[in-house]
C-alpha cells in the first residue's frame, strides 16, 4: 500500500514537471501534495498530514494559480540539458548508496530512543505560532498578489 502511494507521488511529480499545460502541471502538483499528506496520516503523523494538505494543496497551490493567471496556461519550450538527467540519477544512486552503507547506525539510534508521551500537548503553543506564521505569510502573499494583478485605475479616461 505504501509503495503504491509513493509510486503515485513520483509519477505525479514527473507529470508536473513534464506537462506542457501549466494547469495540468499545477493539478499534478496539488495531487502529489495531497497524496503525501494522506501518506503522513497513514504514518500516524496526523497533524503533519493535515498541515501538509492545508498548506500545500490549499495555500501554495492557490498562490501558484495566481501566478498562472499572470503568465498564461502554456509553458515556453526550453531546451533541457541532457546532462541533468545523468546528474540527478547519479545523485540518487549516491544518496541511496550512502544510506545503505550507514543504515546500521540509524537502527542503533532507534534502540536508545524512548518515545515521549504528550509531546503534542507540550508543544501546542509552538504549533499555534507556526500556524499563525504560515497563515500570515500566505495571506500577505495573496493580498499583495491581488494588488499586483489588479489593473491600475485610469484617472485620465
Amino acid at each position: 500500500m505504501n509503495i503504491v502511494f509513493l509510486t503515485l507521488v513520483l509519477v505525479l511529480a514527473i507529470t508536473s514537471l513534464s506537462a506542457k499545460n501549466s494547469i495540468t502541471s499545477l493539478i499534478s502538483f496539488g495531487l502529489m501534495m495531497l497524496l503525501l499528506g494522506i501518506y503522513y496520516i497513514t504514518l500516524d503523523e496526523k497533524l503533519l498530514g493535515l498541515f501538509q494538505i492545508f498548506v500545500y494543496t490549499g495555500g501554495i497551490a492557490v498562490l501558484m494559480l495566481f501566478g498562472i493567471t499572470l503568465i498564461g496556461t502554456t509553458f515556453k519550450p526550453t531546451k533541457p540539458n541532457p546532462w541533468t538527467v545523468a546528474i540527478a540519477f547519479g545523485f540518487f544512486v549516491a544518496l541511496t548508496t550512502l544510506f545503505f552503507v550507514h543504515k546500521d547506525k540509524l537502527h542503533r539510534i532507534h534502540q536508545d530512543v524512548t518515545i515521549q508521551d504528550g509531546l503534542f500537548a507540550s508543544t501546542f503553543g509552538d504549533m499555534v505560532i507556526l500556524f499563525a506564521l504560515i497563515g500570515a505569510s500566505l495571506l500577505y502573499g495573496t493580498i499583495k498578489m491581488i494588488n499586483v494583478i489588479k489593473p491600475k485605475r485610469r484617472d485620465d479616461v
Binding site: I71, N81, V85, I87, A88, F91, F92, T96, F99
Partner: peptide
C-alpha cells in the same frame, strides 16, 4: 523503502531545478 522514494523525489526535484528555466 520510504528513504529510497524520498531520494527519488529529491532527485526529480534536482533534475527540475537544473533543467527547467521556467519560473513555475
Amino acid at each position: 523503502v520510504d528513504m529510497v522514494f524520498a531520494f527519488a523525489l529529491f532527485s526529480i526535484g534536482l533534475y527540475g531545478v537544473s533543467s527547467h528555466k521556467d519560473f513555475l
